[in-house]
Design a protein around this nucleic acid. Structure first.
Lengths: 342, 342
DNA sequence: TTGAAAGCGCTAACAC
DNA sequence: GTGTTAGCGCTTTCAA
């Protein structure tokens, strides 16, 4: 059995309060006493029982991060950034995978499993605007993503519409006019897919390019295989296009692969742009032009905001909407100038 | 403030023991009593305080997983599998990133931060055989990977030597004789790089093919950019080769990209094989032949083994070495038959 | 500067 | 069947 405060106190010949004082760096301790205590701690290999400390203090020093699936590169990179930032604040991170399933997301918000943590950073995928009430939970919560807006909690997300519009304009500026989309969700208005489609449509309209429904490739999941399958469908449909906007990098890379298999050169015949700026976007063939949506900033801001809510200095502070800046990262798959082809 | 057992007991007009009995599904409770209590629980929105329960029971229901970096696809996919398996056992998973840094790994093993968990699944990268003593910790521990063998704890890992040998033999069987390596570590004997290089050398020797030091590409990190850089160095060196063995998929994909940039076809001029069977290996261009090292089995087995140690039915059970089965996954980048080229 | 003692919320003997 | 009570290991008034 591990040593306790009492064991240390007994060995050092002091009370547990004194030991506690030493551990918590209470300033007014006689050096001789401190030394005695420290010797006893070392001798017993004592480490404080965090569970007991937590029970007393009401804090655990842990936060939870709920994402759909770490197998998705975007969320893996997001989680890595959140953990790194949390570590700077001496917090540990407990990760939950929801599978993007609405019921599991709702269940998670309710479940006592989170009692182990001081708060939650939550990236829903299955829940929608109708579930906004479920975000009223009795613990600190920060929501990420674009499934739910105007909720009762702090919300850190990216400028989806503006970024998608900029991505589309990047293609238009290089002379492309028939821009296919890979990753739309049927009938979705908010959510990444809905917002990015809106940005796409806005860019077309602003430039007087007609919106052609035949150019829109639908897929629910955003795995690479879905990008490939959707592109195959677009090709089979026989619709003409000279550019592709993948709603994330993974889709774009899957689509690019199918294009090349089908004998279309990238960016010669078809320019391709993605969204996310995953690590691998810079190493694909050709390297992928994409949107950096500010993932690191989002991770940092989410942790900082959650910490503020946990500290609870101003319980009545209204919920905030925090928006990351984005940036087009130009690489080979969609050069700015139309001259760079084949 | 959240409701406690006492609040519920007061409202229901019973003792806290009765409430506790209801919550813990103790069988012998009069239905009327149960109903009263359940009504009070619902009314107050009571949920048990897990911290208090943990303090009492000595269990937290959480395990820790320490990996170098979730930004590395292998570890992200491993973490996803561990979390999924832990969830089946009603455990939550706390993830630590060590950056593959020896000092941080040693610090983690000692630190009280793990006190929040019942045990640790630890995938070291910086520590080596000399640090075996650091694995003698006062909590349940399962070690992954190939940095440390014959430690005082259960060890779940893959058959690196045999798998690397099989990968090399796959290339030899298709008629390749000059097989370059990407990912070796200078002077390493164990560790993934050391073991895989050994498997490579064994395969060459078994087939009477000379081992040429000029074919060995060294790099410390295994990011995609390192695969690219190492391949560039091999090309600049002017050494002839007709196949490449990337010590992981990420390296192999980085190397494949540089080969194609340099005008070498894959697999026509150069066959490429990787190691890990990442999700993306099946979607690259060409798709990547690789080794499936049994990652899912490793995740499942690590959780199961850790749970057994936590349950502690047999404290004196000797440490076990558990080895996953591997499998060559043949795809386009290295077909079995030499005929499939260009 | 240090000690004594209460209590965080829960579980599990043990009593009734 | 249900109630009483003693801690789990720690922090924190309050006294000394």
């Amino acid at each position: 059995m591990a040593a306790t405060l009492h064991d240390v106190a007994r060995l050092a010949g002091v009370s547990i309060k004194t030991v506690s004082n030493v551990i918590n760096d209470y300033p007014h301790i006689r050096p001789a006493t401190r030394e005695k205590v420290e010797k006893a701690i070392a001798e017993l290999g004592y480490t404080p029982n965090l569970t007991a400390r937590n029970l007393r203090s009401g804090r655990t020093g842990a936060i939870a991060l709920a994402v759909p699936d770490l197998g998705l590169a975007y969320f893996a990179e997001l989680a890595a950034a959140v953990i790194a930032e949390a570590e700077r604040a001496h917090l540990v991170v407990l990760i939950e995978q929801t599978g993007g399933d609405r019921d599991r997301e709702l269940e998670l918000l309710r479940s006592g499993r989170l009692k182990l943590t001081d708060g939650l950073i939550f990236s829903p995928l299955g829940m929608g605007q109708d579930d906004v009430a479920a975000l009223s939970v009795p613990y600190p919560l920060v929501v990420l993503g674009e499934r739910i807006f105007d909720g009762p909690v702090d919300h850190v997300t990216m400028r989806n519409v503006e970024a998608a519009r900029a991505a589309t304009e990047h293609l238009l500026a290089s002379g492309r006019r028939r821009i296919a989309v890979v990753g739309a969700h049927e009938g979705e208005v908010i959510g990444s897919a809905g917002l990015r489609l809106r940005g796409y449509a806005e860019a077309l309209e602003a430039h007087g390019v007609p919106y052609d429904p035949d150019l829109i490739g639908y897929t629910t999941l955003w795995h690479r295989s879905n990008g490939a399958r959707t592109m195959r469908e677009l090709l089979e449909r026989g619709v003409e296009f000279d550019a592709v906007f993948g709603f994330n990098d993974t889709l774009a890379l899957g689509a690019a692969r199918v294009l090349q298999e089908a004998g279309r050169t990238v960016p010669g015949d078809v320019a391709v742009i993605g969204f996310d700026d995953l690590d691998e976007a810079q190493y694909s063939i050709p390297s992928l032009t994409t949107v950096d949506p500010g993932r690191d900033w989002i991770a940092r801001t989410a942790v900082t905001t959650l910490r503020e809510r946990i500290a609870n200095t101003d319980p009545d502070a209204p919920p905030r909407l925090l928006l990351a800046d984005f940036r087009i990262v130009e690489r080979e798959s969609a050069p700015a100038s139309p001259s760079a082809t084949r």
